[in-house]
Computed example of a mutant assay.
Amino acid sequence: MAHWLLKTEPEAFSLDDLKARGQEPWDGIRNYQARNFLRQMRRGDEVFIYHSRVATPAIVGLGRIVTEAHPDPTQFDPQSHYYDAASRPDAPRWDLVDIAYLAHCQPPVSLETLREMPEFSDNPLVRKGNRLSIVPISESEWQAVLARVTLV
């Protein structure tokens, strides 16, 4: 089993939204490196949900991958913000996975805290200018975060 961190802006889609829905497609990924990470995800992989573009960016909860990567239908919808005119149904460019809610983290683990943790010293999340919405998480990083939180 692998571990991942998925960034989301809570005004667009929050951990509470995921909890309310139970399961949701993680769509709208339009970065090739992030898409390639999506394609590596396997059913049962666990993810940290990270709220970005907030006063205190932080890991706020956990989810689980419930479907492996498959074409993101928003790429074919001209009404969608994520429409890609160059993508074709017979050769889709963009994928999504379905995520299920697992738990909230109490307290959330802030980006500032992650930057202070030796386990995260090489993780791209803590580097200035990182814009990836999906980041692989090592087993030591995963365990270091879980040791700081209560899952509720």
Results as ranks from 00 to 15, higher is better:
104 H>A: 14
17 D>H: 12
91 A>Y: 10
81 H>I: 13
111 L>K: 00
104 H>V: 14
102 L>V: 12
118 P>R: 01
89 P>C: 04
6 L>P: 13
80 S>P: 05
72 D>T: 08
104 H>Y: 15
79 Q>R: 13
38 L>M: 10
56 T>N: 11
127 R>Y: 09
119 E>K: 01
54 V>C: 06
27 D>P: 04
29 I>V: 15
8 T>K: 02
6 L>F: 15
113 T>Q: 04
22 G>W: 09
86 A>Q: 15
27 D>E: 14
103 A>M: 07
56 T>D: 11
122 D>L: 00
115 R>E: 08
77 D>G: 05
6 L>S: 12
31 N>Y: 07
14 S>T: 02
68 E>Y: 06
60 V>G: 03
66 V>G: 06
48 F>W: 12
58 A>V: 00
111 L>Q: 00
49 I>N: 01
23 Q>L: 13
104 H>N: 14
100 A>M: 05
89 P>Y: 06
92 P>R: 01
29 I>K: 06
35 R>L: 11
90 D>Y: 07
99 I>A: 01
52 S>G: 10
49 I>C: 02
78 P>K: 00
52 S>N: 10
43 R>E: 15
29 I>P: 11
33 Q>H: 12
8 T>E: 10
58 A>M: 01
60 V>L: 04
16 D>G: 13
112 E>R: 09
90 D>Q: 12
100 A>T: 08
98 D>W: 07
34 A>T: 10
68 E>T: 13
42 R>A: 13
53 R>A: 14
38 L>Y: 12
103 A>N: 13
41 M>H: 05
67 T>D: 09
73 P>Y: 03
6 L>Q: 08
32 Y>I: 11
126 V>H: 01
124 P>N: 11
59 I>K: 01
32 Y>F: 15
74 T>I: 12
14 S>M: 05
48 F>M: 07
18 L>F: 07
114 L>T: 00
28 G>C: 12
120 F>I: 00
55 A>F: 09
20 A>M: 13
84 D>F: 09
11 E>T: 15
127 R>Q: 14
44 G>V: 08
22 G>D: 10
28 G>L: 10
92 P>G: 04
71 P>T: 01
15 L>T: 08
90 D>C: 05
33 Q>N: 12
79 Q>L: 10
90 D>H: 09
126 V>L: 00
40 Q>E: 14
113 T>N: 00
60 V>H: 06
5 L>M: 15
22 G>C: 10
12 A>H: 14
21 R>K: 15
16 D>W: 05
39 R>K: 13
87 S>N: 09
111 L>N: 00
65 I>Q: 01
118 P>S: 09
102 L>I: 13
10 P>Y: 06
32 Y>P: 10
101 Y>W: 12
65 I>F: 04
60 V>C: 09
11 E>G: 14
115 R>A: 11
85 A>P: 12
18 L>Y: 07
57 P>A: 02
65 I>Y: 01
